[in-house]
Design a protein around this nucleic acid. Structure first.
Lengths: 256, 256
DNA sequence: ACAAAAGTGTTAACCGTACACCCATGA
DNA sequence: TCATGGGTGTACGGTTAACACTTTTGT
């Protein structure tokens, strides 16, 4: 699948990028993580305009779009092998990096493949926050987690893309047990509940949630309990890899 | 929204199309209809190779992709204002019209924008069979309805695209009452049930189905019954436009 | 009269929701 | 010991699924 790709310097990229990449098509990734009880999204900040945006990239001319999405994800997070989902393709002709003050780097260029209208394919991913190393690209100053409910104004239609991704993630909760990717290996039932509550942005009943989750038969309760907590210590759980995979194949209903 | 677009002859299209359309991006439409108890899909047959494919097209450089999909749909069916849904974007680098014997028309050309790899955005639509006028395009010999469960081998990955569209349509049944678009104005409850059974490809209980549909409160039973049928004549129904629209906004559950 | 298809009603099983009770722990 | 959070069980109500009965019509 993945393949050695040439490196670029900035000038090459602006002037010759179209020789390597498909023109007019981009990929934008909405990378979800979970930390301190909040749903987070990974954003990049442009060096020159200081404006924030979704991490994205382009597709090599001989590259599968899924592979491109994986590559982009890996380059921003260091992670491989994560849950990745295409959710929508955005094609307003006003999606144009040459305008809207995305970056001043393009102003100087009289002509660049980047100064045109782009159709972008949206992917979202859910990752384990603790394993991510946020990594800026060449044009960005920062790569940082933002609370999903506090993201600033982003470039172009990136706020709208984020909204659609979140809706898609919520719908997906019914078919896919999301905890596995967002939490560390060992976690407690309240941890898992927090994930669902944050994504759905509503309170769930503690007792019913536990029943539901356990009834899916994809969790394995460990002997140990969580250490150093106030009040009664909750059990630790792991996902039972075998049952988890089997459940996915059979299309269990994970909804809450 | 829609806009006057230039006409093309075949030669212009092959040699200068890229001046008007976005290169490397196409749209493919899976157009569903319903007739004689069968779910149908509209297919085109190439003049030269006689191979069948999904109706598709390209995106003008200043055109919204949704508008392009509507335009393509209208040109093959004559219909405007129909239920259209983007469901997936396909990006295997092997999607290449220049190979795979799609058409011999490209063989002669040493170079054409069409002889390259294409990323295609998939849309499906559900339409009233009786109102459609299947219309071939310039390169196709036939435009014809096919039983969904009997489609021939199609070009490129079009069979796979069709499969994904069908899955998406099935999932969508829960959120969208599909009968309105697939049936004529007046229809019977058994007609409606046939639609659901065909799409889901499974038998439903006649009595429970009726109860469920009526409980949604979006149907209006007419005084008249169906004419000239063997056995007991079923009632005719219409969709109650006002209640139907309200239900859509409120996100009723239409599942069966 | 009978078979086939349609309209109506009843019942049991299932599932989501609400909530009561008990246990463990730190302040 | 008390407040807080966690684990377990029960009871209610709505929805779904299964199935019985009656009505209509052509042969």
């Amino acid at each position: 699948m993945s393949k050695k790709r040439p490196g670029f310097n900035a000038s090459d990229f602006f002037e010759k990028g179209h020789l390597y990449f498909l023109p007019h098509i981009s990929i934008d990734c909405v990378i979800f993580g979970f930390h301190t009880g909040e749903l987070k999204v990974l954003l990049l900040q442009w060096k020159d305009t200081l404006r924030w945006c979704l991490p994205g990239g382009f597709i090599y001319r001989d590259e599968h779009i899924e592979d491109a999405a994986v590559r982009i994800l890996k380059s921003r997070t260091g992670l491989d092998n994560i849950y990745l989902q295409q959710f929508h393709t955005f094609g307003d002709p006003a999606r144009d990096n040459g305008k809207h003050g995305v970056t001043k780097l393009l102003d100087k260029k009289s002509k660049s493949w980047l100064k045109d209208r782009f159709v972008t394919i949206g992917y979202w991913a859910i990752v384990d926050f603790s394993e991510v190393t946020p990594t800026p690209d060449e044009f960005s100053k920062e790569c940082q987690w933002w609370d999903i409910y506090q993201v600033p104004q982003l470039i172009l239609d990136h706020n709208a893309i984020l909204e659609v991704a979140l809706e898609s993630l919520r719908r997906n909760l019914n078919d896919y047990p999301v905890g596995k990717n967002l939490l560390p290996e060992k976690f407690t039932m309240p941890d898992l509940q927090r994930v669902y509550e944050t994504i759905l942005s509503k309170k769930l009943d503690r007792r019913n949630f536990q029943k539901k989750m356990l009834s899916l038969g994809i969790l394995h309760r460990l002997k140990e309990r969580k250490q150093g907590v106030a009040h009664k210590a909750p059990f630790l759980y792991k996902f039972d890899e075998k049952k988890y995979q089997r459940a996915l194949r059979q299309g269990l209903k994970f909804g809450v």
